[in-house]
Simulated scan of single mutants.
Amino acid sequence: MRSRTCHVVAALVAGLMTMSLAACGRGDERVTDSFSVGLLLPSRAVPRWERSDKPLIEKRLKELCPHCAMEYANAEDDATMQRQQIMSMITKGVRVLILGAADTRALRSSVQEAHDAGVPVVAYDRLAEGPIAGYVSFDGAQVGRLQGEALLKAMGDKASRGNVVMMNGDPTSANAAWFRRGALSVITGKVNIARSYDIVGWSTQSAHANMAAAVAALGPDRIGGVLAANDAIAAGVISALKSAHVGKLPPVTGQDADLDAVRRIIKGEQYMTVYKPFRMEAGAVASMAVALGRGEDLRDIATTTTNSPTAQHIPSVLLTPRAVTVGNIKQTLVKDGMYTIDQICTRQLRPACDKAGFGR
């Protein structure tokens, strides 16, 4: 009888131990999947960061890790502020940082501090210097090539005789240099680059001022095309051309497919933009962040590697951009769900939309 009782007790103890271990396992899973991810974006001046990237990253993080939390901060083009934001997030205990750097060089020491604190940093859209754990962006050289090819096509036979003004991005951005190299690889020797400006902070106002200076120097009728690095810069360029009473606007490039830029394309004021499917970029960076938070390897996510001035073989995802003109807005931006026709075609734009073949 005693032996049987002992066996029963032993079985109960074993069962309780199994239940306890299982409960601990479940608890460990909950702990593993309930960490914080810090998202640091660089600017409010460029609409995409707040309107597209932030909500898309937050949504995908929740899908991949329902119990994870997201800490968010925007640097407003201030690298000193972003350094403080990084330190604040490390202090709060975030497990991973997603960094869209306000200044890729100036943030190097902060990336190192995060690394030393055991917080991996995923560079988003811009490759920050320092010990970066992963990198997600679009092929910047291809962005520039698409802009250059579109500009040559729009200028047509006049390309060899036309003056081109280059409105480059922020000189502190590695991406701006990447875009510029890509564009130059296409247009060098085929057009006369009459003026070239670096636009600090990708500012619409600075672009306006510099374009006004170019018009004053070259004359309003002697500008054959403008290679604007993004849509915010394109907005400043076009406003300056209008202020100078330029009769027929020259072709102007852009990037980011901002809604206002798409409307300018419909109106015939801006020739093209470069569409970078932000949903894919946001999805890739969220996947990297969750994998790092769980202590997983990035090799199943990264499709290539990238070198920076301070790090080699960074696991990377480099996505493919697409050129958008009035002829393929429906096949790109509308088809992908970035905008609806009703969002693009305001009442004032309805005649232009009808002319462009935008049926409801």
Rank of each mutant, 00 (worst) to 15 (best):
T172K: 15
A289V: 09
A73D: 07
D336L: 15
S34G: 15
I314D: 06
A244V: 09
V262T: 01
R95F: 06
I132T: 13
A14N: 11
R30I: 03
D221W: 07
L318H: 03
G201K: 08
E269A: 03
A101D: 04
A235M: 12
T104D: 12
A128G: 02
R95P: 09
R195Y: 15
A14S: 14
D260E: 11
M288Y: 08
A234V: 07
V94G: 05
C65E: 07
S160A: 14
A176P: 10
I301R: 02
N163K: 10
V31F: 04
R195A: 13
A244L: 03
R264D: 13
D170T: 03
V334S: 04
M70P: 06
R279T: 12
C24L: 07
L127V: 10
V326R: 01
R195T: 10
V13K: 09
A154G: 13
M155H: 08
G293E: 06
G268S: 10
K276P: 03
S308I: 10
M89F: 15
L218M: 10
D354Q: 14
T310S: 14
P351I: 09
V326C: 01
T346W: 08
R2L: 09
L21A: 09
G359Y: 12
Q331G: 01
W202C: 12
A14D: 08
M87Y: 08
V324Y: 01
G134T: 04
L40W: 01
K276F: 08
G93Q: 03
A23H: 01
A114M: 04
A101S: 15
G254N: 12
P321W: 15
T320M: 13
E149A: 04
D231Y: 09
E58T: 14
H208P: 04
I341M: 05
N74A: 10
A356G: 05
V164L: 04
M19H: 09
A102Q: 10
T104Q: 15
T104E: 15
V290K: 08
C353K: 03
G100V: 11
I266A: 04
E269C: 05
H115L: 02
V46N: 00
V96H: 12
S206R: 15
G283H: 11
I341R: 00
R83G: 13
D116K: 05
R294W: 10
G27F: 06
G130W: 00
M81G: 13
G359S: 14
L21E: 03
V317L: 09
C353E: 03
L12A: 10
G236W: 00
M1H: 06
Q331D: 13
V252G: 06
D125V: 11
I98E: 05
A22H: 08
R181T: 13
M155N: 08
T172G: 12
A311M: 14
M272F: 01
G118H: 04
L318P: 00
N192Y: 11
T346F: 02
G293A: 03
A23V: 12
G225K: 09
L319N: 03
D297E: 07
R279W: 08
G15I: 02
G38T: 07
A289T: 08
Y339D: 14
I187G: 02
R279H: 15
A114F: 07
C6A: 12
C65A: 10
A235C: 06
A69C: 04
A69G: 05
V9G: 11
M19E: 13
A311T: 15
G293R: 11
